[in-house]
Design a protein around this nucleic acid. Structure first.
Lengths: 201, 201
DNA sequence: TGCACATTCATACGATGCGTATGTAAGTCA
DNA sequence: TGACTTACATACGCATCGTATGAATGTGCA
């Protein structure tokens, strides 16, 4: 094996650690994942982990950031190819729920992540999927689709909470298809409440 | 000390363990709470803990059940003393958010609880606060306050998710008063979406 | 009332996982 | 090319957990 630049080696090491941790966290969960085990699986030891990430928690942050940016990219892709802005947003939210059904995302991003790292809105991923949600809502509001008294941050919070719950419900259901349909009805109704409409009564 | 009936001793031991665990879980969190430490603080050892609760997880379940039934009692009290059913429900939800601001409830019920025990809707506390939510929604729907196509379970999910997020937002804010006001606006708007109203366009 | 039994809880032990301190090899730059 | 830094492995001590065992006390039955 020829001499390779150090920066490449580092990137490879970090990547291997993140991948191994992601797999372990996603399957057995953060608390049950043994650092010795999954570093060994990556052909490394805890020494490398502590050097690059400071500890288990730091590695979780890195894993979450990776998942988050992947989700964000998928969401941007989806919302960008809609002609109606509101419909695009509804699509985005629906996709958000569907992604939360994936075990890796559900477990790491929506369960262990918040429990270990705290409030997701404080994770401050500039390119995270929550930032995407807020951005979408901001433009929607500016375009007059959302009630002017509702702030984008606040709406993003509600939507995030409801989405995760909806996904949890569907994932734990014994008839995911039917449950999904029922969840979407309630979820869209909730979104309608945020929308700017004229009412009587 | 005279001979006391065994059932009393047991109840006292369980109570002491639950109280000590509740305090520890609420302050340092579930993962950081040492069983040796908080059992000793209760004047006991891990032996008693394993005997009565099977382990740390079982004790967490007991603590959560206690908090949950306390919350439920408070919610029932609040919703019962409202004249307008819908307003009573809004009050109940608002109280739910406010309770989630209490560190003990936020940490144990909304953070560590779901992470360790899984989906709160599966905890199956017959007298839990989620059951209260569902019950309130069921009666509201029967009375025609809620859109007929929305199921009580589904709505409870959305509301629960949104409430927890709202509470998290407020709790982590540097101006809780102002944040609370903004959160409530969005939350009520969301509730309006579930409500049965006549609309144009 | 007395005794066998079940239950409650403490103690003791082994195993596992974590964090830090230290060592070593390899890359980098003057 | 040699001093220095960086990347990672190794080794050690400590805390925590689960279980197996033991002692003490209340309880049910003759």
């Amino acid at each position: 094996m020829a001499h390779r630049p150090r920066s490449e080696m580092i990137a490879e090491t970090r990547g291997k650690l993140i991948a191994a941790a992601r797999k372990a966290f996603g399957t057995v969960g953060y608390a049950e994942a043994s650092m010795d085990d999954f570093t060994a699986e990556a052909g490394l030891t805890r020494g490398a982990l502590y050097h690059h990430f400071g500890g288990k928690k730091g590695l979780l942050e890195a894993v979450v950031a990776q998942l988050d940016s992947e989700m964000s990219a998928r969401l941007n892709e989806i919302s960008s190819r809609a002609d109606n802005p509101w419909q695009g947003f509804v699509d985005e939210c629906t996709a958000y729920i569907e992604m939360a059904l994936e075990p890796e995302i559900q477990r790491i991003v929506h369960r262990d992540g918040p429990a270990v790292l705290g409030d997701p809105f404080q994770w401050a991923n500039q390119d995270g999927c929550i930032a995407s949600l807020i951005k979408s809502l901001t433009t929607l509001k500016a375009a007059g689709f959302v009630r002017p008294d509702i702030e984008a941050d606040a709406a993003a919070r509600m939507i995030n909470g409801a989405s995760v719950q909806a996904a949890l419900w569907i994932a734990n259901s014994d008839d995911p298809e039917a449950t999904s349909a029922r969840a979407v009805v309630a979820f869209r109704a909730m979104l309608e409440g945020l929308r700017l409409v004229h009412r009587i009564q």
